[in-house]
Design a protein around this nucleic acid. Structure first.
Length: 427
RNA sequence: GGAGAGAUGGCUGAGUGGUCGAAAGCGCUCCCCUGCUAAGGGAGUAAGGGCUUAUACCCCUUCGAGGGUUCGAAUCCCUCUCUCUCCGCCA
């Protein structure tokens, strides 16, 4: 949620910011509701005050042994008036809240304006796309020929958008995950976390997936429904729920490996081939919980941590700043890391690093006590993939492929692969 | 799954219908005192929201959550969640 006070005091500024996302915010409608809210809130609280005051007087009178009948008669209809006022106030408040929960974060000033991903701005590249003296294959063919990547088996078990891996390829994904976690913990200072993969609605409300994007999530049919996490950002960021940190406790850096589950509703026809877009994939996530004035710098640092993984794997990539139309709901600014995939001859997203400023913190009441004022204020939250393991596996397969279809193992992964240097059929 | 106990402010912990947003202690902040240290004295110390130019007053909400009874609920009733202990089962 954005700051309701800002929304109230400068709705036109807010609307202009939303317009950069291509979103039309009905200021007039909002202000009307807000006016009603104000009137009804004052009315309701005045009535409550009246009730409280008379209840106290009745109590005092009774203690003195006075006759309280006239006092009771005086408040006879107060209850009904209060009920009536409260229910009208509640209705307006609910409506306002549902509007506010549906509003995205405010974009930072330096986010480039554009409608969609074609307007994203490349800010740097690292490495250069490999040239092969043979026809480069994509991961699907490579995996099939190795006999280690099996979409038919996955389809039998679970349908489309699932993968089965066997042997060294399954091992290689595990190696990637281990390598990433180890690097973030020992070189970047993160605390490794193990977290629930099933979460309740309030956790998703806190990070912004709910209420607006329910159709993207898998949900259990149990009595208290659980959602399968679409990213470890959800449990990791919710560590800060309802907490008031001391200033010296921040920043907090967490990393976790989890599977991620996404319904991919609305992405029919996109990336249906291969392992790019799955209902279930593995990811190592990075989350920063920081003091508000630190978040801009923290985004650069966090992005650097994700980049470091690709550099160590020697995978060519580029960094793009997402344009206003492509920035996610909860983010104020986002850098995407796009890795080069020889099989597609394209850069494809492998990490997305966002500064969510106080947007998630406000939803989950995550605060820090300001050392100077002693007052609690909202923290800033950031998250990024460090990096998506499934896509990293694809990138390694395609970038490290050999003419005969085997795959070299990047040197940093060899210790995690019992010293093996390549994967080949039957290995 | 069965039986029992519990959930109060940063912490410990009192409080079974009114003057309780809540005793006391600890912690923390400020002041005083003592040459230093130790000890002592005093004052203050929850969060969110409304109104407001205002971090000033004033007001509202919150004692696990949600309902209910009542003029009035931390306190009584109902439902739920979580924690702890014992038994059973289980990785």
């Amino acid at each position: 949620m954005i700051d309701p006070k800002l929304l109230r005091q400068a709705p036109d500024d807010v609307a202009r910011n939303f317009a950069r996302r291509g979103m039309d915010f009905d200021v007039q409608r909002y202000l009307e509701l807000e006016e009603q809210r104000k009137t009804l809130q004052v009315e309701t609280e005045t009535l409550r005050n009246e009730r409280n005051t008379s209840a106290k007087n009745i109590g005092k009178a009774k203690a003195k042994g006075e006759d309280i009948e006239p006092l009771l008669a005086a408040v006879k209809d107060l209850g009904d008036r209060l009920d009536n006022s409260e229910s009208r106030f509640g209705a307006v408040q609910d409506e306002l809240q549902s509007i506010e929960l549906g509003l995205p974060n405010l974009l930072m000033d330096d986010v480039p304006v554009g409608d969609d991903e074609s307007a994203n701005v490349e800010i740097r590249t690292w490495g250069s796309p490999a040239r092969f003296d043979f026809d480069a294959q994509d991961h699907i063919d490579l995996g099939a020929k190795l006999g280690m990547l099996d979409f038919d088996a996955a389809a039998k078990i679970s349908g489309s958008r699932f993968a089965v891996m066997r042997g060294d390829l399954a091992h290689l994904q595990r190696a990637l995950i281990q390598f990433m976690l180890d690097t973030h913990v020992s070189e970047h200072g993160y605390v490794e976390a193990y977290v629930p993969y099933l979460v309740q609605d309030h956790a998703l409300l806190g990070t912004g997936q709910l209420p607006k994007f329910e159709e993207d999530l898998f949900k259990t049919t149990t009595e208290t429904p659980f959602y399968l996490i679409p990213t470890a950002e959800v449990p990791l960021t919710n560590f800060a729920r309802d907490v008031i940190f001391d200033a010296d406790q921040l920043p907090l850096l967490f990393t976790a490996h989890t599977p991620c589950f996404r319904s991919e509703a609305g992405s029919y026809g996109q990336d249906t081939r291969g392992m790019i877009r799955q209902h279930q994939f593995e990811k190592v996530e990075l989350v920063h919980l920081v003091a508000p004035e630190e978040s801009e710098q923290a985004l650069e640092v966090l992005t650097g941590h994700a980049e470091k993984i690709l550099q160590m794997l020697e995978l060519p990539y580029r960094v793009v700043t997402l344009c206003s139309g492509d920035v996610g709901f909860s983010a104020a600014k986002t850098y995407d890391l796009e890795v080069w995939l020889p099989g597609q001859q394209k850069y494809r997203e492998i990490s997305s690093c966002s500064n969510c400023t106080d947007f998630q913190a406000r939803r989950m009441k995550a605060r820090v006590r300001n050392a100077d004022t002693g007052k609690p204020e909202l923290i800033h939250t950031l998250n990024g993939s460090g990096v998506a393991a499934g896509r990293a596996l694809i990138a390694v397969m395609e970038n490290y492929q050999q003419a005969e279809g085997s795959i070299q193992i990047p040197s940093v992964l060899q210790p995690y692969m019992s010293g093996a240097t390549e994967i080949s059929r039957g290995s």
